[in-house]
Design a protein around this nucleic acid. Sequence first.
DNA 1: TATCCACAGGAACTTGGGGCTA
DNA 2: TAGCCCCAAGTTCCTGTGGATA
Length: 411
Amino acid sequence: MENKSLDGLFEDLLQNESLFKNKEVLRPSYTPASLPHRTEQVNTLATILVSALRGDTPSNILIYGKTGTGKTAVARYVGIELERKSEDINIECSVLYLNCEVIDTQYRLLANLAKHFGEDIPMTGWPTDQVFTKFKEAIDARKQVIIIILDEIDKLVKKGDDVLYNLSRINTDLVNAKVSMIGISNDLKFTEFLDPRVKSSLGEEEIIFPPYDAEQISDILRQRASIAYKENVLDEMVIPLCSAFAAQEHGDARRALDLLRVAGELAERENETHVGEPHVRRAQEKIEIDRIVEVVRTLPTQSKLALYSVMLLRNNGYRNVTTGEVYNVYRQLCVNVDMDVLTQRRVTDLISELDMLGILNAVVVSKGRYGRTKEIVLSVPIESTRRVLLEDYRLGMLAGFKPVITAQMHL
DNA sequence: TATCCACAGGAACTTGGGGCTA
DNA sequence: TAGCCCCAAGTTCCTGTGGATA
């Protein structure tokens, strides 16, 4: 009986008319046919890269700008156009895009590059210089210009700049091929950690992407909405409101597109025929909660224990908890769930990582004769975060746990 | 003004897992 | 199977910090 009613599950849902024509247009992976308010940056980048079409090596480029300012979209757009033109004029030119958030080690980066040129490189096991040699041999087999786009290049630099040093000098070892790099970062200061030789080589040209203002974001949204949504589906206030929310977040166009998409999805789920202001406001809340839930759910167990320690102290009335207090409670939790107790040094790092993720706010304060520590405040809603933490089977057994608090607490 | 506290955080090192080659 | 490599996570050791206190 139950199966019979489920048979038509998707048929029923498919009968509801969608508000979207093409939802993919609102996703970050989409590269639009034109980029409003980025003409200057597109032209600058194209001017630098045009030498690839003459068979020369373009200068290496560093692109800076905050999240959602169009850096990646511009680089990919110009890359696509460059490849298209090179085909027209029979110049071999490849543009490779790698995100260093995912490919964040020297070995993985080189292995990915080599694989692109048909080399069979294992996930691990080879000496890095062997992978580099394979990559060089693969690209130098024929005359070509290769542009490597390294998105979020700062993530790669955190684990050493050897790979950037090697790549920046690769042209001296090549006979046929020519390699140029485009580094994309939202951290203006990341080059401070680079070897001066890498710094000067990588930053031959620099392009800064300023944040969009609310009006510019509105233009971008209108352009995408006309492709993504059916006609007359969006209420008048939807785009200005999405733009205003995104402009508050340092002109983040990506956030604006997310808001526009999620607002539509919420309206669709409620079988509405229009997307209105309430949908945008609910979308704003949903995106933030989804982000927190996803981040907390995917934390390593040790980080979850550190976070749960902060929450237990908060539930016991402590507003600003210190590293020492957190560590005391953390040790008790570890014993209760039969986990290894990490050193305080390591727990300090876990707290710093939670701070960077925006789950905690940890500020270093000096309490004079009572030492120097971090004051830690939760930045996420307690109840929903607690529920997510207790979903972990190891933490589930801590549901009714009450810590013994012995430290000198400052209420 | 020197001392003290409770850490912060950098650097070097260790450990253990996964994978490759000979 | 031994020996090597990469890599993430963790440990150990160390110096630095800054404001209250004696």
